[in-house]
Write a protein that binds this DNA or RNA. Structure first.
Lengths: 175, 175
DNA sequence: ACCTGAACACCGTTCAAGT
DNA sequence: ACCTGAACACCGTTCAAGT
């Protein structure tokens, strides 16, 4: 698959190259729509809102990660724009509500939710970025890739470890 | 300032539009160089390697954030590629060394350093992304921006709070 | 050996002309 | 009212031709 373009989108879907402009005013507008559509994949109704706040937030973060992992080419698009769709605002509000009910001050609840989202996005972004480089010969110094591979093997899948650290750290602010 | 291009880079520096190709083979190659140059701004020799591991990691994360904040247009470029420069490898090795000396298992040291970098990049990326949208009228629903602004005011600068949470969480793995 | 600029194969976006 | 495709102002990259 080669690089995305507005023209290719239309032709790939069997329409004329300008067809996208009949649905979106702009490339930015289309990208905003893509980010909102990815957020919708969270299926907010199915998130465990009634569970313990750690399980709720953990499930949210893991689902976000797996959505982004399914669309690696769209990760940079998702990561570089704030999503302000109805679903995004809804998820945000529910999270704050549940976290404050669990004992967090409103500001701390907001901070926790943001830290989590930022960590998840940074994490998947680095995974996608690293994956995008594996192919090339890297004629300069092939040792780097081996070193990176060895490091990856040693670190394993540390996403959940990072999440747990965040939870443990924020947990202290409840007492 | 309008969008970057290889041609504009040359002309902006008083040379011909193709001048960049005499120094870099590619746009990717130039971007890799930019990311490495930003990493060099860390001035690794001046990091507090001998300090407590928390202070060391905190200083590293804050310096990384302020470097990226100084170059907002380059943040997406930095965030979407792994930096494998000599300075980057050096910083990584020193961090692992100091963290293991502080009592972390090698794998945990690697995980902590990665979680921190990913959180820092995700954090600054979301700040840059949010800042890039403030200008537009947002004819659809101006309330979103006010809501976001109110939320920002309530959350304040929570970067250090996120860092501290990570530290506290990983601290438990030492005992 | 280095520099230049024309040329190629694309882009995003607009808009007059068709139906 | 919707669709089409030509046109405009760009891109990244290559490469023959100059010096």
């Amino acid at each position: 698959m080669d690089k995305f373009s507005m023209r290719k989108l239309g032709t790939a879907l069997g329409a004329d190259p300008m067809a996208a402009y009949r649905h979106f005013t702009d490339q930015q507008d289309l990208f905003d729509g893509m980010a909102a559509a990815m957020f919708d994949e969270l299926e907010l109704e199915k998130l465990p809102w009634q569970a313990d706040w750690r399980e709720m937030m953990r499930t949210y973060a893991h689902r976000l990660r797996s959505i982004l992992a399914r669309h690696p080419d769209a990760v940079p698009i998702f990561a570089t724009r704030p999503v302000r769709s109805a679903a995004a605002i809804d998820v945000g509000n529910r999270m704050i509500t549940q976290l404050t009910a669990a004992g967090f001050a409103p500001a701390a609840a907001l901070q926790l939710s943001r830290c989590l989202r930022e960590f998840a996005i940074g994490h998947i972004l680095s995974r996608v970025a690293a994956a995008g480089r594996g192919r090339k010969p890297a004629r300069d110094s092939p040792e780097y890739n081996e070193l990176a591979a060895a490091a990856d093997a040693a670190a394993g899948d540390y996403f959940d470890i990072g999440l747990t650290a965040m939870f443990d750290g924020f947990d202290r602010s409840i007492g």
